[in-house]
């Protein structure tokens, strides 16, 4: 069974590119455009991994991450934070509140795919 990936970002063009990339790699993909939608999608879609943008309307990526980690039901969900603000403090903050990995925009598609595959244990 294909792994399920949830893409959360408010920039439509980034969503398009990520969605295309992940589908091409054979993952099952769902999309959310803001934080609240992301939480709803997690509850209905049960993703294995989540690509989570930090700067979003309604709920920031940090808040989404905190909310998910507060619920033990999501213990197996892996979270990769994506941020356009490359400050070290934000990377540290993301990891501290429970993100599994951190990618700075703009990222290399190869690296992103490799990281996701290694995290999901796919060869």
């Amino acid at each position: 069974m294909a792994h399920k990936i949830l893409i959360v970002d408010d920039e439509p063009n980034i969503v398009i590119s990520l969605e295309f990339l992940m589908k091409k790699e054979g993952f099952e993909v769902a999309v959310a455009n803001d934080g609240e939608e992301a939480l709803a999608k997690v509850a209905s879609f049960f993703p294995d991994l989540m690509l989570l943008d930090v700067m979003m309307p309604k709920k920031s990526g940090f808040e989404v991450c905190e909310a998910l980690r507060a619920d033990p039901a999501n213990a197996n969900l892996q979270i990769v934070m994506l941020t356009a603000k490359g400050r070290d403090t934000e990377v540290a903050k993301g990891l501290a509140i429970g993100a599994d990995a951190y990618m700075t925009k703009p990222f290399s598609t190869k690296e992103l795919v490799a990281k996701i595959k290694s995290m999901l244990g796919v060869a």
């Binding site: 063009n13 980034i14 590119s17 990339l21 925009k105 703009p106 990222f107 598609t109």
Partner: peptide
């Protein structure tokens, strides 16, 4: 600056 660059880079690479 990074937001548009992200789309540009990802799509160009693909």
């Amino acid at each position: 600056l990074r937001t548009p660059l992200t789309s540009i880079r990802a799509l160009s690479e693909m």
